[in-house]
Amino acid sequence: MTSSAALAVPAEACRVASVRTWASTRMVTWGIAVDVQNAALLVIGELAANAVRHGRSELSVLLSLDTTVLQIEVADSGAPRSPVVPRLELDEDEHGWGLGIVETLSDDVTTTRGEAGWRTWARLRLDECPACLRPRPHVPAQRRR
């Protein structure tokens, strides 16, 4: 069974939190494990922030769920905006990590550029979410008496 949900909002920084809240509600409704939800919300937040910072005037998010994969699609579209003015003092430690975070948390990431704007897909396997795997607890070997 496949479920999907879509949201479109103006590409404004103040909308990123509401996009995450919307996505969280969908994932809770679908019964997705909390660890996967947390990873997905980080991915959605990073991709939405990139669309706001570098994209066009509209932001859309599509979540698709099948039995083993949650697919997140974030796209920007609409009218081109004025080029982003580069910051004079970018702290390398605080900026530029977004897609690296997305790639670490996702099993697969694809980004394409078309006439309408950028589109990124991130896929998280429900049974093997990289960020959700916990080390197995260490069980000491039993001593023989």
Rank of each mutant, 00 (worst) to 15 (best):
S3N: 12
E115M: 06
A5I: 06
L90E: 13
P135S: 05
L105V: 08
P10N: 13
G78L: 04
A40F: 04
G96Y: 05
A39N: 06
L124N: 00
S57F: 03
D108L: 13
T112R: 15
A49V: 03
G78H: 02
E103K: 15
M1P: 12
N50F: 00
R136C: 03
E58V: 10
T29E: 14
T68E: 13
R56A: 07
G100I: 05
E73M: 14
W121T: 11
E94K: 09
V84Q: 15
A33G: 08
L90R: 12
I101M: 15
R144F: 08
G55D: 02
L133N: 03
R81S: 06
G98Q: 13
T68N: 09
R145F: 08
G31R: 14
I72S: 00
E73C: 09
E92K: 11
E128C: 07
A122N: 03
E46N: 01
A33V: 11
E94N: 09
C129R: 04
L105K: 08
L105I: 09
W121H: 10
T120Y: 02
C129T: 02
P83E: 14
R87F: 09
D93A: 15
R119H: 09
R81N: 05
T120I: 04
L126P: 04
S64A: 14
A23I: 11
R125S: 10
R56C: 03
W97S: 12
T112S: 15
I32W: 05
T120V: 02
A13L: 13
S24R: 11
Q37E: 11
I32N: 05
G45L: 06
T110R: 11
I72A: 01
R56M: 04
A141C: 01
Q142M: 10
D108W: 07
A39D: 13
L7G: 06
P137G: 01
A79P: 05
D66Q: 04
M27K: 07
W97C: 11
G114S: 15
G98R: 08
L126R: 07
R143C: 02
D91N: 14
E94Q: 14
D76S: 09
L47D: 01
S60N: 02
S77I: 02
W121P: 02
E128Q: 11
P80K: 08
T25L: 11
L88D: 13
D66P: 04
W30S: 12
H138D: 08
W121Q: 10
S64Y: 02
V9T: 14
A131H: 03
S82N: 07
L42E: 12
R144Y: 10
G96H: 05
A116P: 00
M27G: 06
G100V: 07
A49H: 05
G98A: 15
L124F: 04
S4L: 12
D127N: 03
